[in-house]
Amino acid sequence: MEFVLQQFFTGLSIASILLLVALGLSIIYGAMGVINLAHGEFVMLGAYTAWALQKFVGLNLLPSLVVIFFVVAILGWIMERGVIRFLYERPLDTILATWGLGVIMQQAVRLAVGGELRYVEMPSVLSHSTSFLGVELSVYRIFIFAVVTALFALTWYLMQRTSIGMKLRAVIQNRDMAACFGINADRIYGLTFAYGAGLAGLAGALVSPLKSVSPEMGTTYVVDAFMVVVLGGVESLLGTVASAVLLGELTGAIAYVQNDTVAKSLALLAIVVLIRFRPQGLFVSKVRA
């Protein structure tokens, strides 16, 4: 029993990291429809900002989170205003442009601070482990779980209950019509993209004490993020959560009985099969268009 519980929590912990990384993408790709291949680089920039704040300013990870969110959000905003807004009607060009921007960001970081792996310290209050229902758990992983839950609630609230979220949903449904009603679609898109980028930055900062920080770290995260969003169903926040939990528990369990190589390939196989029979993903948000 204890072992099942242990494995369940492991799955949840993997899921929370998946969701953390995918949440920003579910806004940018899911809501705005921009296939942003530079998403992983926002994650990487978040991790590097955390490292820089720690090394040069002496700021602990927890207080730097706020700064990191705004730094990466502003970068995202500049990218949207500078490049992506010219490409909304041309999805193929967007893929190429965002991929190119990703490569530029990787190499810029490498040139600026070098290619070696960087070290972000785990906050000391969170670096021990604790016993819960007879199961030994890392406090830091519990912390990540809590942060993700809060970020998800905030995002859902922003999208569904605030006027900016309502305007965004209107612009997504019919941009011209929304503009006729006096909504500044450009501004809405810019802000949404910045918010998604900021979330990705937070993800990078939060995973950095558990994993490693290098200019190439984004590449693996962008694959995971797309996997989660596509499986959950584009345009559905709830679907993103469901698919993150599903993938986390699935890979965790398979990795336990087999190994991580098998887990990864089986998870991908399951997604391919599912997409074949249900191309819209697990969840579809009902919209009258």
């Binding site: 242990q6 492991t10 993997i14 693996t220 890979t251 965790g252 336990y256 190994n259 991580d260 190589t261």
Partner: peptide, 16 residues
């Protein structure tokens, strides 16, 4: 046991 190159999620391994 072998993990994929670049693998960074070791929760299941640690459970084992």
């Amino acid at each position: 046991e072998y993990v994929p190159l670049g693998h960074s999620e070791f929760s299941s391994v640690i459970n084992k």
